[in-house]
Design a binder for these strands. Sequence first.
DNA 1: CGGAATCCCAAAGGATACTG
DNA 2: CAGTATCCTTTGGGATTCCG
Lengths: 125, 125
Amino acid sequence: MTTQYTGSPEDADLARADSLAREIFSDVANKWALLIIEFLGDGTLRFNELRNMVEGISHKMLTQNLRMLERNGLVERTVHPTVPPRVEYTLTEAGRGLRATVDTMCGWTRRYIGHIEASRRRFDT
Amino acid sequence: MTTQYTGSPEDADLARADSLAREIFSDVANKWALLIIEFLGDGTLRFNELRNMVEGISHKMLTQNLRMLERNGLVERTVHPTVPPRVEYTLTEAGRGLRATVDTMCGWTRRYIGHIEASRRRFDT
DNA sequence: CGGAATCCCAAAGGATACTG
DNA sequence: CAGTATCCTTTGGGATTCCG
């Protein structure tokens, strides 16, 4: 993800993989996506259940992010053809892999929340 | 970060910590911040060095994110009062802690890049 | 109920110019 | 060189409405 290229022919592939990695990173490294992944956890949630848990997210943002996560194969979407429709979301293996790192990030927040709060107060003067 | 409140008096503090955690999460969970942290690594970089490494970032976004990271105590900024000025950025302990989780995330990307690419092709039809 | 589409505003973000 | 300020464009994202 931080590679340097010398211009040799097989570098083309590496450069392609690199820009793909950056694209994936950009998709995934945003708060809504990460919060959705975190709340989904090991369970299965319906659209409006997710909407209630990820507080502050709008209908539109939720669909948008769910589509994106589905497209990248992090979330599986299963539609039960009942009426009214019932749509359930769950993490794929890849999604659970990412979830593990989000967990770490949440742990980090808990660990340093004091430092951060203090640092903010110092800075805001 | 995902707590439920019953309304008891001491819940006020917990709720405050929670919303603070969400705030921090929102600050930090964006691609520019995470890329800056990743590139900073264990080293020390100047403004324009960072600018060249985090490709695609604008002057404005870089300053903005560096200020934010400094405010949260993740990045330390040292100014050498020479002419022309020399400003160096380095991760604090908290910053290095977060960097570890960003590393994990980069590892995750490398691991699943194939799955993701395939999933995208399937989806885009 | 889940989602697509529309409209519309506010915020993000780029380009440029100016300062110590 | 690093940073602030200004301007201007593009995007994000909320509210609403309609469809299966």
